[in-house]
Design a protein around this nucleic acid. Sequence first.
DNA 1: GATTATATTCTACAGCTGTCGAAGGAAAAT
DNA 2: ATTTTCCTTCGACAGCTGTAGAATATAATC
Lengths: 124, 124
Amino acid sequence: MKIKKLPETELELMLALWEADKSVQRNYFNTKFSNKGWSDSTILTMLSRLQEKGFITCEKSGNKNIYSPAISRDEYMQVENNSFLSRLHKGSIKHFVASLADNDELSASDIDELEQLLKELKGK
Amino acid sequence: MKIKKLPETELELMLALWEADKSVQRNYFNTKFSNKGWSDSTILTMLSRLQEKGFITCEKSGNKNIYSPAISRDEYMQVENNSFLSRLHKGSIKHFVASLADNDELSASDIDELEQLLKELKGK
DNA sequence: GATTATATTCTACAGCTGTCGAAGGAAAAT
DNA sequence: ATTTTCCTTCGACAGCTGTAGAATATAATC
């Protein structure tokens, strides 16, 4: 029952589904990803793979499929967050932020926002 | 000349190579990854793929290969860091930290360390 | 120099991903 | 009831990954 990381395209669909925050039908993805030039088949294949993998459930309404998430965004985020930190930053958020700073990818406003956020978190 | 993300196992080799911080021969990886149970062939295949992809260079010394990185750790980290943030956290480190907090994956000491680091960064 | 031990290169293959077109079934339009 | 239109399910296929045995080249040993 361990959650695995999804390949890129399947993840995009999941993110869209979580964002919808309700059950949707295939068409939702079509419009959402109209820019990608994916054929209906492509989207349906990805959805059925997500289903096999246990990320979504699918029920029929007439001839149409209705999709719902079977795994929550938070559950999945945990997997991705941990995987990222442990693979690349010794499992520590501090190392990650330091890495961003090393590469000049941390702006002054990023720093301010972060400090602000940390202050709030401590308040709890 | 855009750097692409590496698959898991190739990345592990690269990380090891960067860590070595000098040119190494195949044997280095063997000992480093003795726990993985990889055969010599497996390691050599991955190395040759890394070479094709332009991540390392390889020169011969007698019948032995000597490998060196052709892409720096920092360059690569930038790719991974940005990809991670943009794919999953709206491109913002703040959102990422917030996500960790939401999932109770940010300990008090993480927070302290981070604040400390940010303070130092501002000092520059 | 012939034989034995090593290291590398080639070839292979199954499973996963990204992408569909073709085939089949239900709904809508005539 | 028939035709047309949608929608979904079924293959399909090429490229990428993980993994390694077989074949080959090079070095070491007798």
